[in-house]
Design a protein around this nucleic acid. Structure first.
Lengths: 192, 192
DNA sequence: CACGGAAGTAGACACTGTCTACCAATGGTC
DNA sequence: GACCATTGGTAGACAGTGTCTACTTCCGTG
């Protein structure tokens, strides 16, 4: 079933992904991952010299997963760029709220700031997609600036929503109005 | 000079604030704070039963500080609501980038989610100000929704800017265009 | 067969947060 | 004034953590 001989390196990351989605980010201690992988606590050091690097590798899986979900949702890309941005935003918010632990890990300060294993760079493809779509949806503006602002908006909604602040402020119980508001704001209101 | 007999409770928080701004958030161990306060490692427990509560008290100072800076920048409030929102946004981004450690602490997941010491509630006054101003700047829209979206946008810009992602995406080296873009987006472009 | 390197083990070290037993002072009451 | 209880802080223990280092085990190659 699960490939027990898949090489310790990938097995450690597998265990980490499993662990962060089920138990949360505070369960990702080096020793616990090693235990669940069935090896001693010193074994991971062979592949990940430091705890941070192992965490970065796990977070990287999150970015890859997110990118895959985005690509799958876009499909053949026949929708209008505007709607593709909307679906991307929804996919991202769904992901962030469903996989809270993983999302939290992906955007941890110490991971991104140290840029271990090029984690920050690994997150760029997803963003590149967004810049491209924004450019096609609004050819009249600085696409990189608008895409950056929109991305920040989506990220902020994801975070503030997870700990309930936005529910308190807006009184909403679904993030859809916020998502629509953000996209309308940055891409202009659409006549439907 | 510094009040050494100010009561251990506030002195611990003082030390924590000092420590997080100079050394960063990872330096905020319970024992280190106790050491710098000149007491044993068990002493804080009398006032803060758990490490998390002490951290929350420190973060709370951050929110109070931020609110004070906002109020000071607004002054007598003679500016147009639109401009007041802009100054508030600038104050917040300046704060976030100048006091990175404190800002990181203020929005730590485990603190906000557990809402220890009502930390999440302590952050609401700042947000209330924003809702009010947005309502006066754009009486035609759902102020709470727009304010929430704008707030999320500001927060996202602060975060993504601190670890350099937005610089990579937008190519900018100053956050002003992003701030302007966000405010224009949510409040509508202003004829200047 | 010998050897060398790769892979993993096991123990030590310093450090962390929490818990518990103790101690010293302080102040109120009889 | 003697007693006692409460408050505020100390000190040591405990389990857990990340990192480092010495050691074993195993396998392929010469």
């Amino acid at each position: 079933m699960s490939e027990r001989n898949a090489g310790l390196r990938t097995r450690l990351v597998d265990v980490g992904v499993e662990l962060v989605t089920t138990e949360g980010v505070q369960a990702l201690s080096l020793r616990e991952i090693a235990r669940r992988a069935g090896v001693s606590h010193g074994a991971p050091r062979r592949y990940f010299p430091t705890h941070l690097e192992l965490l970065s590798a796990i977070a990287r899986r999150g970015f890859e997963d997110l990118a895959a979900r985005g690509a799958a949702a876009l499909g053949d890309g026949t929708e209008s760029p505007r709607r593709q941005v909307a679906t991307l935003g929804r996919v991202y918010l769904d992901f962030a709220l469903t996989h809270r632990g993983m999302h939290e890990l992906m955007f941890r300060h110490d991971l991104l700031e140290s840029n271990t294993l090029g984690l920050r760079d690994a997150s760029l493809p997803v963003f590149g997609m967004l810049v491209d779509l924004v450019g096609r949806a609004r050819p009249d503006v600085d696409a990189r600036l608008v895409a950056g602002a929109l991305l920040a908006n989506l990220y902020g909604i994801a975070q503030l929503w997870t700990w309930g602040s936005l529910q308190l402020i807006t009184g909403a119980d679904d993030f859809t109005p916020l998502l629509d508001a953000a996209i309308d704001a940055h891409l202009g209101r659409e006549d439907r």
